[in-house]
Amino acid sequence: MSTEAESVTSIAQQAVEPRKVEVGTVYAVADGSGGIRVVDTDGYDLSPRHKAANRTVTDAISFVTYVNRHCLPGTEVYAHTSASSVVAVIDSHEGTDSLPGWQKHKLTLGLEHTKAWLAWVARDLGTNERAWMSQQEFAEFIEDRALDVHDPDHARLIELATKFEATTKVEFGSAVRLDNGEVKFEYTETVGPRKGNKGGIDLPKELKLGLRPYIGGPIYYVFASLRYRMRSEGLVLGVALQRPENILEAAFADIVTEIRDGIEEKDGKPGHPGIGDVPIFYGKP
């Protein structure tokens, strides 16, 4: 409960006529209950006293452009490999015997995977044992992602998909591994006028993919082993990416290098500078 003196003080404060304050200044004022509160008029000025922001960009060029635009003497960049994250603290501390920074202005490079990379990873048996596909599913997947494959060539890949689509009503017998590493499936047709006819399908040992792991990043060759299982419900097929984690690490390292050094113009493609002398530390800010 307020004392009589506090009530008198509060009434007296309310009777004070409004007066102009200096915008951008911090004031200590009575809170009406005997205490003090701080009033910051920074929000009414034409611009704040210091920058405060937490931005996110999705490619190296945008990251470099932003850092170079706002760079201060204390600006630092932190690269965290396992999280595939790069963070710039624009207003960080300048260093020994120098001014400290507010550390309220940050920029994050939030890398995003391409649709092609996500499509293959979703079918990767190395990370998802349930990614086995029926003949029809395998054929449709190969047709949909044929442009990602550099070897075998496009014509043979489509031919392979077509054969698997056309042999859903057959009985597969043995699978023979050939000298070149490919597997030959022998089958006998069980339905239709060609019932009893035999045939075969040659399955390549692996696919050579050209994938861009991150949007805006470089393309890498990724090898995918082709696998199969003979089950009671029929033949199932799948792909197993070879060490995709190494590809991601290499892609991230190349992006950090691009941020530091920039890239030169090549084959008509524009380049961009790096962040120059801004230090890069490996870890989290």
Rank of each mutant, 00 (worst) to 15 (best):
T257D: 15
V222I: 12
I11M: 14
I247N: 02
G101E: 08
E265M: 08
S84Y: 13
T127L: 11
A12Q: 12
V29D: 06
A88E: 05
V67P: 01
V89D: 08
G200R: 01
E182S: 15
R194Q: 09
D59N: 13
W102P: 08
R229P: 02
V67S: 00
L207V: 12
K208Y: 11
G268I: 07
S82W: 04
R260L: 10
S2N: 12
P152R: 06
G173R: 00
D31R: 00
I259K: 04
E249Y: 05
V176G: 02
D254V: 04
E258H: 12
M230Q: 06
H93Q: 02
T25Y: 09
T56F: 06
I11S: 14
K104S: 14
G126P: 04
Y214E: 02
K269A: 14
D59V: 00
W132R: 00
E264N: 14
T114Q: 01
P273N: 11
V67E: 03
L203W: 03
G35C: 04
R212E: 15
R49H: 14
V26M: 11
V29H: 03
I263V: 15
S134G: 08
A253F: 10
N68W: 05
A88M: 06
G199R: 00
I275M: 09
K169A: 10
R194V: 02
Q13F: 07
V278G: 07
T3M: 09
S92N: 12
V256P: 03
